[in-house]
Design a protein around this nucleic acid. Structure first.
Lengths: 253, 253
DNA sequence: AAGTGGTCTAGACCACCCC
DNA sequence: GGGTGGTCTAGACCACTTA
């Protein structure tokens, strides 16, 4: 055992966790605990080095890693700042109607316009990759926030998946969640979005004038086997709703 | 020892580019040139240090950056390997205007309406998390397919990033690609989408009637450090365009 | 001018892989 | 073993911000 050059075993002399990782989690926890509030500055690097008893290079590795996580932001001659807590858990998912409602502190409800078991038309069959005439479960709903109509949702589900759906109360339940809770692995949703004028029927349901801009989103949701589970068309009153999402362009982590 | 502790930098004494960045591009170019083929090993770090005349820490910063780009893969006791040029299609990217054009066999072009260096307003400054009055580069363009106007694009870029952009021909070049080629790591694009009626100016550019539905997409594109690089608002004629994407669902929980 | 982050170095030791 | 990447340090200088 030759001399250990200096390194007084500060607090944690453990091999399992690299020092910079320990520092990173320590810093993140302090920030999460509110010791340093969002928007305010961290102590200077040289100071943090003393506090954590690590070198500056190591500290900076921890700080840089926290930047990638979106926790910190560096500012050259000024210091390290805590980023606004804008953290989304699933950054690549579209914010759902329910999520939007909760973010805005509103109550989402639905009024069922139609709910039936029919047979698929040629177009529907093509979308689902099934034979025309195959039974399809259909639900049409007006979706509301605090009782104000926001959108009209037309959804189709293959009948074999939708067994028992005629007993579900879709005024408060999400069709999406209902399918997921049946154990199906929802994987991806191919989506198109466009702006269209409202026709008279839609305008009636939304209490807007015919011809008013409407945001139309069509989705086909598939499971891991790429089997279509749900096809939906939602039409939002243009001035009452806004889709929110975050696209990624980088490498996976 | 004769000392001169502050060793004069050897060959590349350039201030503008950090050494590790020079090393990174040098390595990437060598790999791209085929000097090291995909799947094979790079020379040992200590050797590369000599070749590039830089310290190991600096070299490793370059190597790590190339990992983030997907060019290299580290293997602990074995070496650094050139990653297979697997071009993954990131599932959650929005189909770009150019991609849409190619898929449909049409030619995308742009007409520049405005291109100027101005100062940021309060709103713009807030979006970019910079001080109001900070210089911003702005480009307004009409985007066309086979000469038919499809959308109007208003984009803002911080002036320090946009250095030299006044010499770029944006009638055929993508603003997005231009930024990416400068070496910025575009990471995510926070997006909102809504349907609005066209105002008279917009309607004029798109040759549609005022009040016609328009699809409005606003994005803020950030790099890995979550620094805003680009803010844009694109308004598509409702009956001439459709956004296409695919969302994935993080399903655990 | 002082304070802060950004870059860089030389050298050390550890953990992993393979012979 | 010997070679390789992974971590860590102390100290230096540079660039940016603020006063």
């Amino acid at each position: 055992m030759s001399t250990d050059q200096t390194a007084p075993p500060a607090l944690t002399t453990a091999y399992p966790e690299p020092l910079w990782l320990q520092a990173k989690t320590a810093l993140r926890e302090r920030i999460a605990a509110g010791e340093v509030k969002p928007g305010s500055r961290l102590p200077p690097e040289r100071e943090l080095c003393q506090m954590l008893a690590i070198s500056r290079v190591t500290l900076r590795k921890a700080l840089t890693a926290l930047v990638e996580e979106g926790v910190l932001r560096p500012a050259h001659g000024r210091g390290w700042y805590v980023a606004a807590p804008e953290r989304k858990e699933w950054p690549n998912t579209l914010e759902s109607f329910t999520e939007t409602a909760h973010r805005m502190g509103l109550v989402p409800t639905s009024r069922v316009l139609r709910r039936e078991l029919g047979t698929s038309t040629f177009d529907e069959a093509e979308a689902f990759q099934i034979a025309p005439g195959t039974p399809l479960f259909r639900v049409d709903r007006v979706r509301m926030l605090d009782g104000v109509p926001i959108a009209v949702d037309e959804s189709f589900v293959p009948a074999d998946i939708a067994a028992g759906f005629d007993r579900v109360d879709f005024t408060s339940r999400s069709l999406y969640d209902t399918i997921a809770e049946l154990g199906f692995q929802l994987d991806r949703a191919d989506t198109t979005i466009e702006a269209r004028p409202a026709d008279s029927v839609l305008a009636g349901h939304l209490a807007i004038a015919a011809g008013t801009p409407v945001l139309e989103m069509r989705q086909i949701v598939r499971d891991r086997a790429q089997r279509p589970l749900l096809s939906s068309a939602i039409r939002y009153a243009g001035d009452r709703y806004r889709l929110r999402t975050s696209f990624t362009r980088g490498n996976p982590t």
